[in-house]
Design a protein around this nucleic acid. Structure first.
Length: 347
DNA sequence: TACATTCGATTATTTACTTCA
DNA sequence: GTTGAAGTAAATAATCGAATG
């Protein structure tokens, strides 16, 4: 029968539904009772470009754009987070300090040095993330002398290393990392060092953040793909069910009215899918057109009108096949059953 | 073979939210 | 109705081992 063609239509529909599905996926998440921590998903959707809703993209610009940086960066009244005069380019290792090579030589050693000596780089660092943590209350109380989150991590070794301390990156740090991730999903060592220096984190932390970020992106993509496949499966199941029904109708028609096969084409033609019999006076092409229109209308909302030539041509094809089927009284092997192939409409 | 990097799986911690007394 | 402790779920930083170049 026309299973191949129909499946193709189904796939085309499913392809269109993918876009819908993506949008639904995002909107579903957004529709859920969400709090501040849900914002990550919006940012994620915007970063990755899936989801038809423009809202996440708008929300992505959470921070005012720092001039000349191309990165959102808050310019606080205290001046802590003013854009670095040198700008930030993760493609370039920071020239100031001259310790990039040293840091590359020894990640943790430098990280420890950075973190364990609050006066070391924090003071000269143009962005003091410690004072801008969204949940800064606990952080402010964490370390003596206002040690920031990243510095609290440095106390691992001081704690004896038994308990795994987990710092929470500040919103600014996360936003900065997100922006960097949009530019590069992976980092070369220089970029990593530059980011770490800029954010006052250990290079290892930046590396881990990117690892986890990639994992999250992949997980989201997997969820989207899963949803897409699910929709495809549903569409194919529905199409299969419809075709099975159509096939049963054809078989019933053949059994009840076998003489149809011997009638001239202009005498009677029936589209089993719409179960309408054309009048005797109707010429075959008009019958085919009517059947096609009926079949197209029967297809209904599952076939958007803007589905392209293939999808438009497909509904025409099937009723035309039926018309041709009944218009060639002796040649078409309907009796061959479901495996029989309809004659090409072009011949 | 040694090394660096990435990835997948997992653990551990933090935080927001809910429930209940 | 309000409050605070306890429980829970989700997010995510960090770790580990395997794969890869």
């Amino acid at each position: 029968m026309e299973l191949g063609l129909s499946l193709g239509e189904a796939m085309a529909d499913a392809g269109r539904e993918l876009v819908l599905g993506l949008g639904l996926g995002v909107s579903r998440e957004e529709g859920a009772a969400e709090t501040g921590r849900k914002r990550y998903r919006e940012v994620d959707a915007a970063v990755r470009g899936y989801g038809s809703s423009p809202e996440p993209t708008v929300r992505l610009t959470l921070l005012p754009m720092a001039p000349g940086l191309g990165l959102p960066w808050p310019t606080s009244e205290s001046g802590h987070l003013e854009a670095s005069p040198r700008g930030f380019d993760v493609n370039q290792a920071p020239s100031s300090g001259g310790c990039a090579a040293e840091e590359e030589q020894d990640d943790d050693a430098v990280g420890t040095a950075l973190s364990s000596s609050p006066n070391n780089s924090v003071g000269s660092f143009p962005t003091d993330f410690s004072t801008h943590g969204g949940r800064g209350g606990a952080d402010a109380a964490t370390g003596a002398g206002g040690a920031d989150r990243s510095c609290s991590r440095a106390s691992d070794e001081d704690d004896g290393g038994s308990a795994r301390k987990k710092l929470r990156l500040s919103k600014e740090q996360s936003a900065f990392l997100e922006e960097s991730f949009k530019e590069h999903s992976t980092l070369n060592p220089k970029q990593k060092l530059a980011l770490a220096k800029q954010l006052n984190l250990r290079p290892r932390q930046v590396e881990v953040w990117f690892q986890n970020r990639r994992a999250r992106t992949k997980l989201k993509q997997t969820e989207v793909d899963c949803e897409h496949l699910k929709r495809c499966c549903e569409a194919l199941t529905e199409e299969n069910r419809r075709l099975q029904k159509e096939l049963a109708e054809l078989r019933a028609l053949k059994t009840v009215h076998p003489f149809y096969m011997r009638l001239p084409a202009t005498t009677l033609s029936m589209c089993p899918s719409c179960e309408r019999v054309a009048s005797n006076s109707a010429p075959a092409p008009a019958t085919a057109t009517a059947s096609a229109a009926a079949a197209a209308s029967r297809a209904g909302p599952t076939r958007p009108p803007s589905s392209g030539n293939a999808a438009v041509a497909a509904p025409d094809h099937r009723p035309s096949s039926f018309a041709a089927l009944f218009s060639s009284p002796h040649s078409f092997p309907l009796a061959a059953g479901p495996q029989a192939q309809p004659p090409s409409t072009g011949s």
